[in-house]
Design a protein around this nucleic acid. Structure first.
Lengths: 179, 179
DNA sequence: TTTTTAGTTTAAAATTAATTATACAAATTA
DNA sequence: TAATTTGTATAATTAATTTTAAACTAAAAA
């Protein structure tokens, strides 16, 4: 009786779609999310061609999507003995994926803002000291203050990211234990 | 001597661009990021027309951008006495913006995945109990396991979001104290 | 009233991003 | 070596998003 397989297919499809959509929330494209979803439920490593069929996309798209997923460590390439084709498996630990994702974003943000702050602070500092114009001096002083606040924020998010990356966060917020 | 104002303009521009870019990392469009950047450094509430000039965009775009920023609580509308036009100010507390942003994303993800899990679990559960086909039964059992793991993850991120929202997180990771 | 002003909606234009078909390079097999 | 196969890069197409101009609504001023 094949309707039981159909039912399984259907429930998987619902879950895969939800996973893809939830990845879209975090800025991943639906196609890439779909690839991950299929791999998440796959019982064993899949080749590009197998994935291609499941997600109904071109080989090139699957290849690109897999590259992106590997860059964020959500998917890994594995070798199947005797098989010539590459095979891929999903990292199933959502928490790990979540942490990787956030830590990366936080670091990107930090690099961007720190660079700008370091680039602008000296000039502003100098203005507060050497300029005659009262208004300019006051504005420079205030801008420096705002930049300092931004840096305090970056200091916090950096410590936050470190606490996630080192898993120290799991001491504060313990994972649900498996039954 | 106007070159001092030019210098100030320039440093602000660098910072505003960096802020806009860092918001792009989190999925905000560059224009919207720019509006926020301008408001961040503005000494006082700005009208749509004033912002429009600073960011060189159409009034409609500024209006839309401001709506988006208000929805995420990064910008608030304020009334200036005697002024007919609406005026806007930026929420300058980056940490607060950061927390709002993440909490919202986490809740969105949770709603999506929980709905799918609740929708699929009963059918799978039934299959593990009533189906004769050994392979179907085993697959259903395994899918249920994967869904359970996803739910454990959602349970964690929910507690994580609560800890951020209630600011309990700041006990674990203290903000840098102002000097 | 009528006229002007502020802000938003809508539909079209412009821009950006994603997807695919094709061509290519590297590796494998015959 | 020649012929296949696999995976990726490129260029072109398609789709989606963003932005704007213009029309419209609501409110205030004349």
């Amino acid at each position: 009786m094949s309707s039981e397989w159909d039912k399984l297919e259907e429930t998987r499809d619902v879950m895969e779609s939800a996973i893809a959509q939830s990845m879209v929330i975090y800025g991943v494209t639906p196609s890439v999310g779909r690839i991950y979803g299929v791999l998440y439920f796959a019982g064993e490593p899949m080749s590009i061609d197998e994935i291609k069929v499941q997600v109904a996309m071109s080989k090139a798209s699957v290849s690109n999507g897999l590259r992106e997923l590997q860059e964020t460590e959500m998917v890994t390439k594995v070798w199947k003995k005797g098989e010539r084709k590459d095979h891929f498996i999903a990292e199933k630990d959502f928490l790990r994926n979540f942490i990787n994702y956030f830590v990366k974003k936080i670091r990107q943000e930090r690099n961007l803002l720190m660079k700008a702050a370091e680039q602008t602070k000296p000039a502003l500092q100098e203005m507060t000291e050497t300029t005659d114009d009262e208004t300019v001096r006051e504005t420079a002083r205030r801008d420096l203050e705002l930049i300092q606040e931004a840096q305090d924020y970056l200091d916090w998010t950096t410590r936050f990211a470190n606490t996630l990356e080192s898993r120290e966060m799991l001491e504060y917020i313990p994972p649900t234990k498996k039954k």
